[in-house]
């Protein structure tokens, strides 16, 4: 059992990150922490895909290196996904700055109360 988990340590960590991220995203009342949760959640997915590309004993995918190679495609995909993630974080933080300016708080429940009282 332990061996099975250790062999797949990267995947275990990836899914722990998914769980932690989802919990923060949904459960936390602080808007900035929600965005951090979103980042952790995405990082879990990135790690999952990168770990899937690993081949035991393989070298980097360069023509000068001897085969077998690790798969380069997931790295390229995740590079794109990281760019998307950074843009999302930027938009989210921009919105949070505006929300803080309007409501003077970062707590989702208080923002909801102000909106409901209008």
């Amino acid at each position: 059992m332990i061996d099975v988990v250790l062999d797949r340590a990267y995947f275990v960590v990836a899914f722990l990150l998914l769980g932690i991220g989802a919990h923060m995203l949904i459960g936390d009342r602080n808007l900035v922490k929600k965005v951090i949760g979103m980042n952790v959640f995405q990082t879990g997915i990135f790690l999952f895909l990168i770990a899937s590309a690993y081949v035991a004993g393989a070298s980097a995918p360069l023509l000068t290196e001897p085969g077998p190679y690790v798969s380069p495609l997931p790295h390229v995909l995740i590079l794109t996904a990281i760019v998307v993630g950074v843009s999302l974080t930027a938009v989210a933080l921009g919105l949070i700055v505006r929300i803080y300016g309007e409501y003077g708080t970062l707590r989702a429940d208080l923002v909801g109360e102000v909106d409901g009282g209008e």
Binding site: L25, L31, K34, V35, M38, L88, V91, A92, L95, I96, R98, I99, E102, V111, D115
Partner: peptide, 9 residues
């Protein structure tokens, strides 16, 4: 802004 942030998350 609040609606957009919720939509984003």
């Amino acid at each position: 802004a609040v609606a957009a942030l919720k939509y984003l998350l």
